[in-house]
């Protein structure tokens, strides 16, 4: 099967700033693909190139096998897009904006639109300028989800949504996946990607630094272990793959590399474990390892 999105080594500069520096990305049809990275990493630029709004300086981008720059209109009929910062026309109501977008894309089922308005708790009769950021985001989400399209390009779609609406959003994405749609979900909300995505690509400074399923990526990272033992656990510090061990009053806490986990757990058993918590790495930790330098830097700023 052909990939829904297939990007080979694209580059894009704005003046002297290099936004994309040889980015590769492949998204299989029917999957939810998490596109993860900090602000300014190039997520929006990538999506705008996929929409044919920007032209890549080098490399090749393919959408359903077509050229997003040359065949923009034909491809756009098969996709829906939600920008991260939705701007509406101040004097059009939310309902008018939703209808307009779905019609420009080729129409949508009015019943589905009304159902989505209800689920997202949106009053469609308010003027665009009166909506809060979260409500503007809902307008764009409803317009995208109501359309009968093959691909959803979502650029940080839930910024400004409250947790309740975030849950509705997750439900809708699962439904979209069940009905066979492909979703590219860009985010820096890590928990969201973790919950929804089949595969994840991590972008940093215009390049994909890591791509794979969540399990693949966890392999590369450290598991956190908390334990209470009868016998002193200091000796674990000497084992290969163990990092940052702290032990006090029988309580031990450390991180261990994925491929050394088995050996460490075996040793823990000999120490008369009373309580044991093993936590898989969160995406925060994944990112911290990739952006470790930046995290340290910003941490220093906060401390100062």
């Amino acid at each position: 099967m052909n990939a829904a999105i297939d990007i080979h080594h694209i580059e894009k500069s704005f003046g002297r700033v290099k936004a994309l520096d040889g980015l590769d990305l492949s998204v299989e049809p029917g999957t939810v693909h998490g596109f993860l990275g900090p602000n300014g990493a190039g997520k929006s630029t990538t999506i705008r190139i996929l929409l044919g709004l920007l032209r890549a300086d080098a490399g090749q981008a393919r959408l359903f096998g077509g050229d997003p720059w040359a065949d923009a209109v034909a491809l756009h009929r098969r996709l829906a897009y939600v920008p991260g910062d939705v701007v509406l026309w101040p004097n059009l109501t939310g309902g008018e904006a939703i209808d307009l977008f779905t019609r420009l894309r080729g129409g949508a089922d009015p019943a589905r639109r009304d159902e989505l308005c209800q689920r997202f708790d949106l009053d469609p009769s308010k003027k665009g300028r009166t909506y809060s950021k979260g409500n503007r985001q809902k307008v764009a989400l409803i317009a995208a989800l109501a359309a009968d399209v093959e691909l959803l390009l979502l650029d940080e779609p839930t910024a400004g949504l409250d947790p309740l609406m975030e849950a509705v959003f997750q439900e809708c994405i699962r439904e979209a996946k069940e009905s066979g749609r492909t979703v590219l979900l860009s985010s820096h909300v890590l928990a969201q990607v973790e919950v929804l995505a089949d595969r994840i690509s991590i972008i940093r400074q215009g390049r994909i630094v890591e791509t794979g399923s969540l399990t693949d990526l966890r392999h590369l990272t450290r598991t956190t272990v908390d334990a209470v033992t009868d016998r002193p656990a200091d000796t674990l510090a000497g084992l290969p793959g163990v990092h940052g061990l702290e032990a006090a009053d029988g309580h031990v806490r450390f991180e261990v590399d994925g491929d050394h986990l088995a050996a460490v757990v075996r040793r823990l058993g000999d120490l008369d474990v009373h309580a044991l918590t093993v936590r898989p790495p969160t995406l925060e930790q994944l990112l911290l390892r990739h952006y470790g330098d930046q995290a340290v830097h910003s941490g220093a700023t906060v401390a100062a």
Binding site: L92, G95, E96, A97, D99, L100, R103, K126, K127, T130
Partner: peptide
Amino acid sequence: PPRPGPPRAAAWLAGPFTLALRLHRA
């Protein structure tokens, strides 16, 4: 209080020309 508007778009508001007309109308 701000007045609410139509919850649905008029049938004619469906293409780039009519959108432009709506935006330039006022």
